[in-house]
Amino acid sequence: MKKIFLLATMVLFALCINAQDAKIAKIDVKDVNGKVVNTGSFSNDGKPYIVCFWATWCHPCLDELNAMAELYSDWREETGVKVYAVSIDDTRTKGKVKTLVNSSEWEYEVVIDENSDFKRAMGVNNPPHTFIVGADGTILWQHAGYAEGDEQNTIAKYKELSNK
């Protein structure tokens, strides 16, 4: 009985909300130098931007970010895109983030979500997980996982959404 009541309450809870497009969560994360950055301050000169969740120990994540890195300067010129790469490495591996980012010559904005607070707030199950976020912070599109060639989908989607 209690469980039914609980379920009913949860349904009511969900129904009583005016469905609106979800916005990017505003959570404190850190940049690679340890400075606190709020994710609410992510921006791209009035254009949408991409948020990629990754970790130093996640092979598909590195595949995705390396594939995008090769195309990134062309993409930037063509579309003005900006990528925020959010590492969910914790104390064990977060020290490797800056080393890896610099040695890989990535040009992304890199932040570290050390205790997965941002990951939790964005409803991410496992990395990699990619979002396209509008200039006003609205989540326009998201995708979980990475398969070879997915980076092309992401940029195609980005072009489509930024021309709207």
């Binding site: 309450t9 009511l12 809870f13 009583c16 909300i17 609106q20 979800a22 409803g123 199950n125």
Partner: peptide, 21 residues
């Protein structure tokens, strides 16, 4: 919490976003 939102919505003050996984 639900009551607060039903009430608030009725007054047209609050919207809200639900996300999850």
């Amino acid at each position: 919490v639900s009551f607060v939102f039903v009430h608030a919505n009725a007054q047209g003050i609050l919207g809200g976003k639900v996300t999850g996984n």
